[in-house]
C-alpha cells in the first residue's frame, strides 16, 4: 500500500517534473512522448476542477470572437488572457506551455510567410530580393496583413490550447455528449482515447525489443523493422479488441457504452469573469476599429 501513496504524491508533483525538465533539458524543444505530455498536463492542471462545459464554451466563444472581430488588439488580449489562465491559474510551467505552443507556432509561421511573400520575374513591391531565377517581393501592407493574421491564428489556437491543457479528454467527450453529438461518435472517441495509450505501450515494447536485437542498426534494416512492427501491431490490436469485447461483455455490456461522469459544480463567479473578459474584448474591438 505504501508504494501507492508514493505514486500519488509523484503524480501531483508535476511542477517538480517540469523543474527537472527545466534543469536537465534546457531547450524549449521536444522529446518523445510530447503528445501524451499534453494529456498529462491536463490532468495536473490546477483548473481541472472547473466545470468542463464552462471551459469548453468559454474557449470556444473566445476563439469565435478572436476570429470574428479580426482585430490585432483583440488577438493580443486573447493570447495574453489564455496564457494567464493556463500558466498562472492552471499552474503549468511557462517552459512547458511554450513547448506545447511551439508545434502550432511552426505551422503558423510557415503558413503566413507564404501569404506575406510572393515570387515574380520582375522586380515588384516595396521590397524585393533578386534570387537569380526571379524575385521574392513584399510590401509593408503585406507584412502587416501577415502579422495580423499570425496574431489572429495564434490567439485562436491559444484559446483551444487553454481548453486542452486544463480539461482531460474524457471530460471534453462528456461535454460533447451533453451537446448531443451522435452517440456512435462519442463511443468511438472514448474507446480510441483509451486505446491510443495501449497501442503506444505495445508499440514501445515492440520497438524496444527490436532495438535490443539491432533492428534499427542502419536505414534499410530500420525500414524493414518498422514494417514488421507495424504489421505485428495490427495483428495484436485485432486480438486485443477481441479480448476487450470479451471483458466488456463479462460486465454486462449490451451495446450501450455508458460511463459514469463526475459532475463538477459550476461556479457563478467564473461566469461573471468570463463574461467580463468577453465584454472587454468587444470593447477593445470597438475602441480600436
Amino acid at each position: 500500500m505504501e508504494n501507492s501513496v508514493g505514486k500519488s504524491i509523484n503524480f501531483i508533483k508535476t511542477s517538480e517534473k517540469a523543474q527537472h525538465q527545466a534543469t536537465y533539458h534546457h531547450k524549449i524543444g521536444h522529446k518523445h512522448g510530447e503528445g501524451s505530455a499534453i494529456d498529462y498536463y491536463a490532468y495536473a492542471s490546477k483548473i481541472r476542477h472547473w466545470n468542463p462545459g464552462f471551459k469548453v464554451a468559454f474557449s470556444f466563444t473566445t476563439l469565435l470572437l478572436c476570429i470574428g472581430l479580426n482585430n490585432p488588439f483583440v488577438s493580443i488580449a486573447v493570447i495574453l488572457g489564455m496564457a494567464f489562465l493556463t500558466v498562472v491559474k492552471g499552474g503549468l510551467p511557462l517552459s512547458a506551455y511554450l513547448s506545447v505552443l511551439l508545434i502550432p507556432l511552426t505551422f503558423i509561421l510557415l503558413g503566413t510567410i507564404a501569404i506575406g511573400v510572393d515570387f515574380s520575374r520582375q522586380p515588384l513591391g516595396q521590397f524585393n530580393l533578386y534570387l537569380g531565377l526571379g524575385y521574392i517581393f513584399t510590401s509593408v501592407d503585406k507584412l502587416q496583413e501577415m502579422a495580423v493574421l499570425m496574431l489572429k491564428v495564434f490567439g485562436a489556437i491559444s484559446a483551444m490550447i487553454m481548453m486542452t491543457l486544463s480539461t482531460p479528454s474524457a471530460e471534453i467527450i462528456g461535454v460533447l455528449r451533453k451537446a448531443h453529438v451522435p452517440k456512435l461518435v462519442i463511443e468511438l472517441m472514448n474507446l480510441i482515447y483509451r486505446y491510443i495509450f495501449i497501442l503506444l505501450d505495445v508499440f514501445n515494447n515492440m520497438r524496444n525489443s527490436a532495438d535490443s536485437r539491432q533492428g534499427y542498426c542502419d536505414f534499410k534494416t530500420s525500414c524493414t523493422t518498422f514494417g514488421s512492427v507495424a504489421s505485428n501491431l495490427l495483428v495484436v490490436s485485432l486480438k486485443k479488441s477481441n479480448a476487450y469485447y470479451t471483458a466488456m461483455e463479462a460486465r454486462g455490456y449490451d451495446g450501450d457504452l455508458v460511463f459514469l461522469e463526475e459532475e463538477k459544480p459550476f461556479q457563478i463567479s467564473h461566469l461573471f469573469i468570463a463574461a467580463g473578459f468577453l465584454f472587454f474584448l468587444l470593447l477593445l474591438w470597438y475602441v480600436t476599429k
Binding site: P168, A170, L191, R194, Y244, M248, F259, L260, E262
Partner: peptide, 11 residues
Amino acid sequence: DNQIIASTVMA
C-alpha cells in the same frame, strides 16, 4: 489492460 476500458478510474 484488456479489462480496463474507461478513461478514468471512476468511470
